Amino acid sequence: MNRRDAVARVALIMGGALIGGDYFLTSCSSPEAEKEKNGSAKAKKQEKPFLSQEQVSYLNEVGETMLPATKTPGAKAADVGSFMAVMVKDCYKPADQQIFLKGLTQLEQASQQKNGKGFLESTPAQRMALLTALDAEQKNYSKTKALEAPNHYFRMMKELTLLGYFTSKVGSTQALRYVPVPGRYDGCVPYKKGDRAWATT
């Protein structure tokens, strides 16, 4: 199974609840992706990347704050920033793409307000406190928002960090327990507190 199939299945298991889940289930074919597919080779050459390398690196740091390296590799080792760039470009509606892009600026502004410095200049403890506050903010917003209201940028970042990490090679084989050729299906596996979850069963 390739990674795209895995992502589609995760979205299906979650009931398409992920932001952009509707596109996940249709193989990430956003209008922009269709235009690109049908465009000329010349147009493709001139196309700017959706996120700059600096923005991808920034998102890797955001992801690493959520899933830091411990005994297992963190989000940066899985390059979740690059994963987010591809998924937002190919699988999110244009309105959500703009919210995500604007969210990079909003996160930086929130860091300046809370810590008096940018996210990258903040200490690990300051970064964690900021993201914890933003997570609480997005949860409250998501509970009360109208169906047609825009999504919260931090929810997108958090969802994509988790999805990108746990469907990556390092996430599924080192953070989770992985058996490349599993045996029979066992729906009731013994579990002890502290055991890693299974990427395959």
Rank of each mutant, 00 (worst) to 15 (best):
M1C: 10
N2M: 06
R3F: 00
D5S: 13
A6H: 05
V7T: 01
A8G: 05
A11F: 02
A11P: 00
A11V: 00
I13D: 11
M14K: 14
M14F: 05
G15D: 09
G15E: 07
G16P: 10
A17K: 12
L18T: 08
L18V: 06
I19H: 10
G20K: 06
G21P: 01
D22K: 12
F24D: 01
S27V: 11
S30F: 06
E34T: 14
K37R: 13
S40K: 05
A41Q: 11
A41T: 08
A41C: 07
K48G: 08
K48W: 07
P49V: 05
P49E: 03
P49L: 02
E54M: 09
Q55Y: 03
Q55L: 06
Q55H: 08
S57E: 07
L59N: 04
L59F: 11
L59C: 10
N60V: 04
E61Q: 12
E61S: 09
G63V: 00
G63P: 00
E64V: 05
T65S: 04
M66F: 15
L67T: 04
L67H: 03
P68E: 01
T72D: 06
P73F: 04
G74I: 06
A77V: 04
A78Q: 09
D79M: 06
F83A: 04
K89C: 05
D90C: 12
C91E: 04
K93E: 14
P94W: 08
D96W: 00
D96H: 01
Q98R: 10
L101S: 09
K102M: 08
K102Y: 11
G103P: 01
G103E: 09
G103R: 11
T105H: 13
E108F: 05
Q109W: 07
A110E: 00
S111I: 02
Q112K: 10
Q113S: 13
G116C: 06
F119W: 02
L120H: 02
E121W: 02
S122G: 03
P124S: 11
A125R: 13
R127S: 06
A133R: 09
L134F: 03
L134G: 07
E137D: 13
Q138V: 08
S142Y: 08
K145H: 08
E148D: 14
P150R: 07
P150D: 07
N151L: 13
F154E: 10
F154C: 05
K158A: 15
K158W: 13
K158F: 14
E159V: 03
E159S: 05
L160R: 02
L162M: 12
T167Q: 00
T167D: 09
K169H: 13
K169Q: 12
V170Y: 03
G171A: 01
Q174K: 04
R177C: 07
R177F: 11
Y178I: 07
P182R: 06
G183N: 03
R184V: 15
Y185A: 11
Y185F: 15
D186S: 14
C188Y: 11
V189E: 13
P190S: 14
Y191I: 15
K192E: 10
D195H: 08
R196S: 14
A197T: 09
W198N: 14
A199D: 04
